[in-house]
């Protein structure tokens, strides 16, 4: 098989995941896009491992490790998202602006409330 097929597919999948991470608003959808990016890397690892016929099969072993780390990441990530949702009532990443610089026109009343609440 031509090596360009898996390599190009992996590059395109990675870019689809990149778009999702940057464009999505819901934190869980961002996590889904991260999974797509990780899978693109896995495809690359497997393809290059099969191409190089590595005696240690480093690519496939690393793919298994990546899958396990992705499972750990999704567990922790979802726990964090759930906790944020329970505390804030939203899981939209662009509404969690507590650590952002205040805008030039002064902070909105909502964020002032949140700051007062956090300080209390």
């Amino acid at each position: 098989m031509h090596l360009a097929y898996p390599a190009v597919l992996a590059a395109l999948l990675f870019c689809v995941g990149l778009y999702g991470v940057l464009a999505r608003r819901n934190a869980i959808l961002v996590l889904m896009s991260v999974e797509l990016m990780l899978n693109a890397v896995n495809l690359n690892l497997v393809a290059f491992d099969v191409w190089l016929r590595d005696a240690l099969h480093a690519g496939q072993a690393l793919t298994l490790f990546t899958i396990a780390i992705a499972a750990a990441e999704i567990g922790i990530g979802l726990a964090i998202v759930l906790m944020v949702y329970r505390n804030r009532g939203t899981s939209d990443v662009d509404r969690l602006r507590d650590t952002a610089e205040p805008a030039e026109s002064g902070a909105t009343p909502e964020s002032t409330d949140e700051k007062a609440e956090a300080a209390a």
Binding site: L18, L22, A23, R25, D92, D94
Partner: peptide, 22 residues
Amino acid sequence: DADSGNRPVALAVAAAAAAALV
């Protein structure tokens, strides 16, 4: 509101990355 406001920027970044990588 599934997509945030920086969707055009995301599209541009992803298209540029795809072109370069491919």
